[in-house]
Nucleic acid binder design. Structure first.
Lengths: 147, 147
DNA sequence: ATATCTGCAAATAATTTGCCCTGAC
DNA sequence: GTCAGGGCAAATTATTTGCAGATAT
């Protein structure tokens, strides 16, 4: 059976010569409870509700570890701040983003994924990862802004 | 016949109630001479070789105008800095980026573009634009790092 | 004249780092 | 006792903004 996210993180730390600490444990737990996409600031606030003594820097440092361990995935929508989402036990997906309300829909298209592989191969690249963001106006915002 | 990039920019300024100024003229000229992808900082340096009196803020402000007018397009590779490239008289394309040397290859796949439209439509979105970045290791870097 | 622009420096915003202290083994 | 880890505040980086003087129409 599959390892739990906590175990994956613990093994990552151990393999890298790092330790699980109370702060890291708290941050992972809170991280796993969060849903959707959130900023380091939002996670910091949620962590603060559990243990107000944990500092921002520790949240940032731990988010980096979570990303390296595969538990977290970054989502950069180009508006200055990096968002994070769950990356372990979740299928890969891309995003459809509303430019008006910021709502994000997860999308996945096997044909696109396959073409991406092909493009990389044709250029002699070994594909590591990719990001694809489709920007537009969602149905709700289109209705609202009708005149 | 097609309007020159300078004309497009001039018309954009006029339509928006703004003026062409010596600084803006210099920045557009230098911008149009640049090739590939470059940062505001790089453009600022190139502009400085023509007119050292032009400030960074003016370069940033003008880059924003260039983007709004369609002459420039932004490219956010997620490593902190926004890059710019030419957007007028250039076909739309996406990028294949080497994680090792930073080299960027322009790519374009009609099938992907078509599927993106379909995904947007299926979700009721009106698609405005998109970004797609494929990250990997380029052939040169793969050869070099062989052991 | 009047509104737009500019350079400069200060202000932001997001994130990282330095440093000294604390706690675990 | 040693050393990783952590809190705090200072530092960094990229970009934006306020302002007072200069400029275009």
């Amino acid at each position: 059976m599959e390892r739990s996210a906590r175990e994956v993180f613990l093994h990552y730390l151990q393999d890298s010569g790092m330790n699980m600490t109370p702060q890291r444990a708290t941050i992972v737990e809170v991280f796993l409870r969060e849903e959707g996409h959130f900023s380091p600031e939002q996670l910091y606030e949620a962590v603060g509700r559990v243990d107000p003594a944990i500092g921002q820097a520790t949240v940032y440092r731990t988010l980096k570890l979570l990303t390296e361990s595969g538990l977290a995935v970054t989502l950069d929508t180009g508006d200055g701040a990096t968002l994070y989402e769950h990356g372990y036990g979740h299928e890969h997906h891309d995003h459809l983003v509303c430019l008006h309300c910021g709502n994000k829909i997860e999308i996945m298209d096997p044909t696109i994924e396959e073409r991406q592989q092909r493009i990389a191969r044709e250029n002699g690249f070994e594909l590591t990862r990719h990001t694809m963001l489709l920007y537009g106006i969602c149905p709700e915002c289109r209705d609202t802004s009708e005149h």
